[in-house]
């Protein structure tokens, strides 16, 4: 948790750390687990850039001034929300789709046993 930079009361109490999922290896090698986490984090960064581009394009199309404030406060139209969500889902499917493939036989089996 980040350091709290405020002297105001927080009304918090001690907590018991219970989240070890971020450090646990589910893939037999913690480096591979970390790579998956990194690939997902990179996806968030990429989508942030793509969505910012979409906002700029919308402002330009509407002939509105492209200022940082206009970008930050832009509210997508319902139609844009729908289209952008579809674009996002398509990007996720195209980029991460391989993770959704089931190889059928156990991958740990030697190649000749898998046929």
């Amino acid at each position: 948790m980040p350091e709290l930079k405020s002297k105001r009361p927080t009304h918090t109490t001690d907590f018991i750390p219970g989240n070890d999922a971020r450090h646990n290896s589910f893939l037999g090698n913690p480096v591979i687990d970390n790579l998956v986490s990194t690939v997902i984090a990179l996806g968030t960064e990429l989508w942030a850039v793509k969505r910012r581009n979409k906002i700029v394009e919308s402002l330009l199309a509407a002939k509105r001034p492209v200022t940082l404030e206009a970008i930050e406060t832009y509210v997508p139209t319902p139609e844009e929300e729908k289209t952008w969500a579809a674009d996002r889902d398509a990007m996720i499917k195209a980029t991460y789709g391989t993770f959704a493939s089931n190889v059928g036989a156990p991958m740990a089996a030697p190649t000749k046993e898998r046929g």
Binding site: F26, L27, D33, V36, I40, A41, M107
Partner: peptide, 17 residues
């Protein structure tokens, strides 16, 4: 199992991030 582990890792990494 790597397929089972992949889903678990992705779910947890997304949630944690």
């Amino acid at each position: 199992d790597p397929v089972v582990g992949t889903r678990t890792r992705m779910w947890n990494s997304s949630h944690n991030h």
